[in-house]
Structures are given as structure tokens and as C-alpha cells.
Simulated scan of single mutants.
Amino acid sequence: MTPDLGTGDEAIVTICCRDNASVGVTFCDRFSFDADSVHSAVELRAPGLTWIWDSDLATFLEELAADYRGWDGERNWQTNDHDLTASATFRSGGYVGPTWALRPWPQAAWAPR
């Protein structure tokens, strides 16, 4: 994980795959509408990474926000080719536990731990 300074002294965090530095996730352009929220742009990169967006990630995230009082079990979202998957569980105290996995190659998997 590498914290950098972006424009306007905003933090940029980059997480790289230990086995292949060309695979990574960058969190940048952080902003907040109020004291209770933090937003970031997320950039995913890997050689051969394909995106088929017939499943809408924004809708998945909006549904999580709409159910702010909680839910049972785990909720999941993925791209058509399974390159990117997201899961979320509702935890005590009103917190959501998100998990993201980036798998750019069918024969090899990489996910942040």
C-alpha cells in the first residue's frame, strides 16, 4: 500500500499485487458532502482486465445505502466475466463490511487481504 499526495494535498492510496506490480487498486479524488461520509474514486488496473457492465455496480451500492437499517447474510455483485466482485455484510453498530476481489486472469486470483 502506498499513500501519495495528490493535487490539493489529498491522499491517494495505491494497493499493488505482491506477485505482479501491474495489478492494483488506487483510491483517489477523496471528498465528503458532510461529516458522516467519505467518497473516493476507485481505479482498478491489470493486464487483460475486461469490463462488461451489464450488472450495475452503482445500483448495488445504492441498495446497500437504502437498507441502512441492516440486512441478514451477505450481498454480492460481480461483473459478467467475474474480473471484479463485491460483497457486503451488515455488522453490529450500523456498519457495512465490504469486500472487493479483483481477478484479472481465470487461472490466477488476486484479492486484497
Rank of each mutant, 00 (worst) to 15 (best):
T79K: 01
D83F: 04
Q107Y: 12
S55D: 11
L57W: 02
I52Y: 14
C28T: 04
I52K: 14
P98A: 06
D29A: 12
A109Y: 12
S87W: 00
A88M: 03
A88T: 08
F90G: 04
A41G: 12
F33V: 05
P47K: 07
G73A: 00
V13K: 13
N80S: 08
F90S: 04
D67L: 13
H39E: 07
G93K: 09
T59S: 10
R30I: 05
T7F: 01
L84T: 12
D4S: 15
Y68K: 10
A41L: 15
C28E: 02
A108E: 11
T7C: 05
S37W: 03
W100A: 14
G24W: 11
W53D: 11
S87M: 06
A46H: 02
T50V: 12
D83M: 08
V25S: 02
P47N: 07
A11D: 05
G97A: 13
G93C: 06
D9W: 00
G8Y: 03
R30D: 04
W77P: 05
R103G: 02
I15P: 03
A41E: 11
V25Y: 00
T7H: 04
W71I: 09
T79A: 01
R18T: 13
R69Y: 01
S37K: 13
D54S: 09
A65D: 01
D4V: 11
G94D: 00
G73V: 07
A108K: 12
W100N: 04
D81E: 15
D4W: 08
A108Q: 13
G93F: 08
A86W: 03
Y68L: 04
I12H: 11
R69Q: 05
S55T: 15
E10A: 15
G8R: 08
E62G: 05
C17R: 04
T14M: 13
R45N: 04
F31S: 13
L102W: 02
P106S: 15
R75C: 01
T79E: 13
R45Q: 03
G70M: 12
D4G: 11
R30W: 06
V25Q: 01
E43P: 09
C17Q: 07
F60G: 08
A46W: 00
D72T: 10
G93E: 03
E74P: 00
D72W: 06
G73E: 07
T7S: 05
A109W: 06
E62D: 15
G93L: 02
L57Y: 09
S87H: 06
R103D: 08
G94E: 01
F27E: 01
V23S: 00
G93D: 03
A86L: 12
W53K: 09
G8P: 05
R45V: 03
D81G: 11
A41P: 03
I52F: 08
D19N: 12
L44T: 12
G24F: 09
D34T: 15
D19S: 07
P98R: 11
W110C: 09
G8F: 10
V23Q: 00
T79H: 00
G70V: 14
E62K: 15
L102N: 04
D72M: 09
A35W: 07
